[in-house]
């Protein structure tokens, strides 16, 4: 198959779309930065793409909660187009604000089985304010916690930067975590790099930078074709982006490229 087409969807306030599209292109995809307003005018545009990526930023200023307004637009106006996309053999990636959008719209955690989300349906999981109460930018270590995710194939551990104010996963019922665990939906966990007997035991700051339940940094749907994560893989495209690169031998490409290559290879392999 030829290079997959990637829709890097941007709304007012999205600000990581350029480097995210650059990363997909560098991995061999053909990425377009598409404005949400174009999709609202012509929802069928989405059918032309194999990968939907919602990039980081502050969509609508995160003014009424991170990702809330963008998420409401997907749910209210693009239900059918998004539904077709989720039911096809396609990939969805939400990074940082994009993860918040996937969660607030209801695309995650259930994926196609939960879509469209009923108006009356109350969300039982959210991304909310960091435990320290403020926007925080730092690098974290992450352990891949499920073999399920297409994007994380072949990766055991990776370091990436986070930069967010509302990145703490909170649930209305802690039993949800066990459900996700059983379904292989816990894609990424914050780790301190030491082998852990109980990887879900809460790590102190900065290991777990936001106080997320069970150290969760990223969630998949049950198929592994949808991934939402708070850390930014598109900010580790070059070895020189690593905070201690001057102490390490690696040069050239950065480890974050692997997620984008995995997405491209998914379509090349099939």
């Amino acid at each position: 198959m030829a290079s997959p087409r990637v829709c890097v969807l941007r709304a007012p306030g999205t600000n990581c779309d350029v480097e995210t599209a650059f990363a997909f292109d560098a991995a061999g995809a053909r990425a377009d930065r598409l404005h949400l307003f174009r999709l609202l005018e012509s929802p069928n545009l989405l059918d032309e793409y194999q990968v939907l990526c919602i990039a980081g930023g502050f969509s609508y200023g995160d003014d009424v909660g991170a990702g809330v307004v963008f998420g409401a637009q997907l749910r209210s106006h693009l239900g059918e187009a998004v539904g077709r996309f989720l039911n096809a053999d396609k990939l969805v990636l939400g990074i940082c604000n994009g993860f918040q959008v996937l969660l607030k719209s209801g695309i995650l955690p259930a994926g196609s089985t939960g879509w469209p989300v009923a108006e009356t349906n109350k969300r039982n999981v959210t991304l909310t304010w960091n435990e320290n109460g403020r926007y925080t930018a730092l690098w974290v270590r992450l352990a891949v916690a499920s073999a399920n995710s297409v994007f994380l194939s072949g990766i055991d551990e990776i370091e990436l930067p986070i930069a967010h104010a509302e990145g703490r996963i909170a649930v209305s019922d802690p039993a949800l975590v066990d459900v996700w665990q059983a379904a292989g939906q816990i894609a990424l966990r914050y780790t301190n790099g030491e082998p852990a007997t109980a990887p879900e035991a809460p790590l102190p700051y900065p290991g777990n930078p936001n106080g997320s339940i069970a150290n969760i940094a990223g969630l998949s749907d049950p198929t592994g074709r949808i991934l939402g994560l708070m850390p930014h893989p598109e900010r580790y495209l070059f070895a020189t982006q690593h905070p201690t690169w001057t102490r390490r031998p690696e040069r050239g490409e950065g480890a974050g490229m692997a997620l984008f290559r995995n997405a491209v290879n998914y379509f090349r392999a099939s």
Binding site: N15, R134, T136, A137, H232, R235
Partner: peptide, 12 residues
């Protein structure tokens, strides 16, 4: 730590 110094992917 409150400033994003990585966005645009150019941090060295």
């Amino acid at each position: 730590r409150q400033y994003d110094h990585e966005v645009q992917a150019g941090s060295v």
